[in-house]
């Protein structure tokens, strides 16, 4: 096989695997609907008028009298057409609801990811290199900071930032989503735990990389320690960090749910919490599916990014 076909086969395999995960996610979501106690008709009626005629209309409209397997297949079919169903509570299409909240959550997740990566990179680069007394002390300090960062629940970081920067100093708005200023604190609250984990991984990777034979070769050419780290070692250190990207995506999405609650920010997380409270299953299912889609897309992209970061993989695959 030529390299191109091999790579195409690899991409195809990834695609199929991703589809299988999505199908499993959809099935789990549907199973949740079946497992949820209480009558679907009751959930749809909510506090509204409850008469036998209305019940019959609802059953007919939502097709609830069909066998479960038919409803399941119908659900999958509608998903394929991009139809996520209708919210019991909001009487709007779930897709529409999610789409309206997506920009806010996406802004938060991207800002937090950038914050986390920047912090982690800065810390890793400052502490990397030959051991000196100063660096050792700095390393111990960052190690402790990282331990704290991964041990504090994100909502607590949010509360601390909120009480210091919003209530004491009044620098940032307390709640809501009004432009960049209201994004700073949530992004920090979500980015700090990411930086904690990523920083550790990067630092360990860098420390290992500067001990490798290629580092010796580079040093023998008279390269400075800074350049060695920036040009050679960092690439190696990135590899284990890239492996964790899927995990980071989960951290960001899951953390967004909580951080949005702390800051009263609109977004997918708020919608999800509301839907769980009111047992609005179509919305809950859609949020679950959404997180699976994000995971699959991100991890597929990461898999391709591997080929860019690590040329060795291009040969072996």
């Amino acid at each position: 096989m030529t390299t191109v076909t091999r790579r195409a086969a690899h991409v195809a395999r990834r695609g199929l695997g991703g589809l299988a995960v999505l199908w499993a996610a959809a099935t789990i979501a549907y199973a949740a609907l079946l497992l949820a106690p209480g009558d679907t008709v009751d959930a749809i009626i909510g506090d509204g008028l409850d008469t036998p005629r209305i019940r019959a209309e609802i059953i007919a409209e939502w097709g609830l009298d069909r066998p479960e397997i038919v409803q399941y297949l119908d659900y999958l079919g509608r998903l394929l057409h991009g139809d996520l169903g209708r919210s019991y509570l909001l009487q709007r299409g779930v897709g529409e609801v999610l789409a309206s909240q997506l920009p806010s959550t996406a802004a938060l997740a991207v800002a937090a990811a950038l914050t986390g990566v920047t912090l982690a990179l800065a810390l890793a680069l400052v502490t990397a290199g030959r051991r000196t007394a100063f660096r050792s002390r700095l390393r111990a300090l960052t190690g402790t900071a990282e331990l704290v960062a991964v041990s504090v629940p994100p909502f607590l970081i949010g509360i601390v930032l909120l009480s210091v920067f919003s209530f004491r100093l009044g620098w940032f708005p307390v709640a809501g989503d009004r432009g960049l200023a209201s994004l700073v604190l949530p992004a920090l609250a979500l980015g700090i735990p990411v930086a904690g984990v990523l920083g550790q991984v990067l630092r360990e990777g860098l420390e290992r990389a500067v001990e490798e034979p290629f580092a010796l070769t580079a040093r023998s050419r008279g390269i400075t320690e800074r350049a060695l780290v920036a040009r050679h070692a960092l690439r190696h250190a990135l590899l284990p960090a890239v492996t964790l990207t899927g995990w980071f995506t989960g951290l960001l999405l899951g953390g967004a749910v909580i951080v949005e609650a702390v800051y009263g920010r609109p977004g997918i997380g708020q919608i999800a919490v509301q839907a769980v409270d009111s047992r609005d299953m179509p919305v809950v299912m859609a949020v679950i599916l959404f997180s699976a889609v994000v995971y699959v897309v991100v991890s597929s992209l990461v898999d391709l990014a591997y080929l860019v970061v690590d040329p060795r993989l291009r040969e072996s695959r």
Binding site: V21, A29, A32, P37, G250, V284, I288, A292
Partner: peptide
């Protein structure tokens, strides 16, 4: 597949049920 879902999302699903 189970590991695909963020912990919080999975927990929300369980609590919704």
């Amino acid at each position: 597949t189970l590991a695909t879902f963020p912990d919080v999302m999975l927990a929300l699903l369980v609590i919704a049920i």
